[in-house]
Design a protein around this nucleic acid. Structure first.
Length: 722
DNA sequence: TGCACGCCTTGCTACAATAT
DNA sequence: ATATTGTAGCAAGGCGTGCA
């Protein structure tokens, strides 16, 4: 059964709220096995078949019970409902069930509703030639003798047209890809657009229904029959039958179909059109005016909601698959922007909400301000050690040239990890940049990768580039004398890190929080930080329970050095003043390198190879000395590698943020933009385009400005109220 | 007036190539 | 085998223009 998934069908009950989100008040009624390649249409048919649902009269509404992990790292899951409406939703469903236990089990709430012909039509303001769907109700009544329609009445005696709308919908979708030009002659055979396979599927489905007899009349059995009555309406006979009708009587449903309406209407009335169907032309295969960004935004909202970092290209594919039109990339991009506004709110409004959100975070999580979170995160994840240093990009300089090495010590959080070497470094930088961005709070050092990259850009020589890289990576000062970008001169600030790429790694950790309104972005970052902390707390507690004393990074490095240490020969042994000299052994890829003399001074905690000073982890020479002198080498490992110190970084606990309705009124002023200043900026921008012009700002609503040079010609009208 | 789109620049990411 | 590096191509977005 590999590749198959079980759908547990819940029906005849209601969706209710429970402790873990949505649930259902009845046990599952049926289990259905499906494969992961199934389409939305096939799934609908299969479930209808399993649940004995007559698709002719009843629409099946499928709601997937979507598991969403709580960001607490404990594996708690909250369930939300995701309506399954298209292939994209089905795809998301399979992706989700592959990630959450129980594996390959889909919980589906199946609810039914009567097919509402009117709303179905009105919802089809799509580019799929839905205009062809629409005979008016009067028309249906007139055609009661025709076998293609079924008409009945509900309790209010309102006429209801009952057609196989699911089949119609699918057929329409199928036609989009198979659209053909309608040749003169207008025989309905020319517009027979359905796919043979679809018809067969419908028939199979109908055979299971109780109303087989009636359905047979719907389907017809003749040579020229089409799979649904609506498709019979696509033919020109039906269209022609309209021309004798009163225009007003026909407009109700036909208002939805501007394209065809235009094609049929001459001199304020519908008349018979002789000739090719002009609303069908090759360009429709590429684009459609009705498939605008607003419509697309509506269609992809579910997709964006469940995956807000989905790429524009992926949305492009979804739209193309769904509608068969290849719309412009920019339209998709615009649709995505609109969807995000709908889900997360407007960008401008978001700036107004942000101070209030920050306020509530400060109240509910005292001591852990939201602005400190990404910084804190960066400080912690550096090679799984609780280093007191933090590499950040300079806010003033190009990221291509220089990074700042800042002391990340934050006493309330890293109290045990950092002995107040440069206390409050971050706060100092925030308080006074002129002080905080300078030693001893911050140290300006170059990122080696960027140095090498810039070098390569200029000289385009791979060999020289490699030499620069090797030079920068040297630990020993005597080998090279470049202050800012070599390990030899870093003064123990870098802990071995020669690049600022760690910053990019953190961007990767938080990369989901991008391209969103500012408050949504900050909230998402906060949630991810909370999740990150929870995950690592669990991991560290587990390691402490196992008896680990140091981080895996330190253990691995010691293990590597131990293997080299056995080859070193200790020449001079001064136990009293703890100074040792040794001859090194060849190792790794440097088998030609050997017989170097290194001096280890245990009291000063230095080795002439400089690695001990750089990394805070004893090098192979120190380990050789320790082995010879029977000294515990682990005592020389920097305390920032201790698992308990590392764990202190993740000690803070976070409290949840209440709903916006419960946020207190802020006791600080909310700053709004100064419209006059905005206008001045706009004017300045324009004056850059026309430097000779002097712009005169009018008072009042700051809506008008004149160019004093052009005297009216070139007057700017800027309405900031819009 | 709103929308769509072309042209352009900037920045980022994914992936292949290379190094260790 | 894994980490690092180089780079092509993509995405975002600004600006201007045309169209309905």
């Amino acid at each position: 059964m590999d590749g198959y998934t079980i759908v547990l069908c819940y029906t005849r009950g209601e969706i209710i709220d429970c402790e873990f989100g949505v649930s259902y008040n009845r046990p599952p009624e049926k289990g259905v096995s499906i494969n992961s390649m199934i389409t939305f249409y096939e799934l609908e048919i299969k479930l209808c078949h399993a649940l004995n649902i007559n698709r002719t009269y009843t629409k099946l509404n499928m709601v997937f019970r979507y598991p969403v992990p709580f960001p607490n790292g404990r594996g708690t899951i909250n369930y939300v409902h995701l309506p399954i409406r298209d292939d994209g939703d089905v795809s998301i469903m399979f992706t989700v069930v592959a990630q959450f236990p129980p594996p390959n089990t889909i919980e589906m709430y199946c609810q039914t509703s009567s097919i509402d012909y009117h709303s179905m039509l009105s919802s089809f303001t799509t580019p799929m030639h839905i205009e062809s769907l629409g005979p008016s109700q009067q028309m249906v009544e007139k055609n009661t003798s025709s076998p293609m329609y079924m008409q009945s009445y509900d309790n209010d005696m309102e006429p209801i047209v009952r057609v196989d709308m699911a089949g119609v919908t699918e057929s329409i979708v199928m036609t989009v890809g198979n659209y053909v030009d309608i040749l003169p002659g207008n025989d309905y055979n020319n517009v027979e657009l359905f796919d043979e396979d679809d018809r067969n599927e419908d028939i199979i489905d109908m055979e299971d229904n109780e109303n087989t007899e009636n359905d047979a009349s719907l389907l017809g059995g003749g040579e020229h029959d089409v799979p649904s009555p609506i498709f019979r309406e696509l033919n020109w006979d039906v269209i022609n039958s309209m021309v004798d009708k009163d225009l007003i009587a026909c407009t109700g449903l036909w208002n939805e179909s501007d394209e065809l309406f235009k094609g049929l209407r001459f001199e304020s009335k519908i008349t018979k059109y002789i000739g090719p169907h002009t609303c069908v032309y090759p360009k429709l295969l590429q684009d459609h005016s009705q498939l605008d960004s607003t419509f697309i935004a509506r269609e992809v909202q579910n997709v964006v909601q469940s995956d807000h970092i989905i790429s524009t290209a992926a949305l492009h594919h979804i739209v193309k698959d769904k509608f068969g039109y290849n719309v412009h990339y920019k339209r998709i991009w615009e649709a995505k922007r609109k969807t995000i506004i709908k889900i997360f709110g407007d960008w401008d409004e978001s700036y107004q909400v942000l101070p209030r959100w920050m306020n509530i975070v400060k109240r509910t999580n005292p001591g852990v301000g939201p602005q400190a979170l990404p910084t804190l995160l960066k400080a912690i994840v550096v090679r799984k050690g609780a280093y007191p240093s933090l590499i950040v990009h300079s806010p003033k300089r190009s990221r291509q040239t220089q990074g700042e090495l800042m002391d990340a010590t934050n006493p309330p959080i890293c109290q045990q990890s950092a002995p107040q070497r440069h206390p409050w470094g971050i706060q100092a930088a925030i308080r006074d940049p002129s002080v905080g961005w300078n030693p001893p709070y911050a140290h300006h050092l170059y990122c080696l990768r960027h140095v090498v990259s810039n070098f390569n850009d200029k000289y385009r020589n791979k060999m020289l580039k490699d030499l620069v890289c090797r030079a920068g990576s040297q630990h020993q000062p005597q080998k090279l004398n470049t202050k800012k970008w070599t390990l030899a001169h870093d003064g123990r600030h870098r802990y071995g890190w020669m690049t600022t790429n760690i910053d990019e790694c953190i961007n990767g950790v938080l990369k989901g929080a991008r391209m969103l309104p500012i408050t949504a972005l900050v909230r998402l970052t906060f949630d991810r930080c909370v999740s990150y902390f929870e995950t690592h707390q669990t991991e560290i507690q587990s390691r402490i329970a196992n008896g680990d004393l140091y981080t895996s990074y330190a253990i691995n490095k010691i293990t590597k050095y131990e293997s080299r240490a056995s080859g070193h020969t200790i020449n001079i042994f001064h136990r009293s003043n703890e100074i040792f000299e040794m001859t090194t052994a060849p190792h790794g890829f440097h088998m030609d390198k050997r017989n170097n003399i290194q001096i280890v001074k245990l009291k000063e905690r230095t080795c002439t190879c400089n690695k001990w000073q750089s990394f805070g982890i004893p090098c192979s020479h120190v380990l050789a000395v320790c082995a010879r002198a029977r000294i515990d080498s682990w005592q020389f490992i920097d305390k920032h590698y201790r698992i308990d110190v590392y764990g202190c970084c993740y000690a803070p606990q976070f409290n949840s943020i209440p709903h916006q309705a419960y946020w207190p009124k802020p006791n600080f002023p909310i700053v709004h933009p100064n419209l006059t200043l905005v206008l001045v900026k706009i004017l300045n921008d324009h004056s850059q385009l026309r430097p000779a012009c002097q712009w005169e700002l009018w008072s009042g609503a700051a809506a008008l400005a004149n160019c004093t040079e052009c005297k009216g010609e070139g007057t700017l009208f800027i309405d900031l109220l819009e």
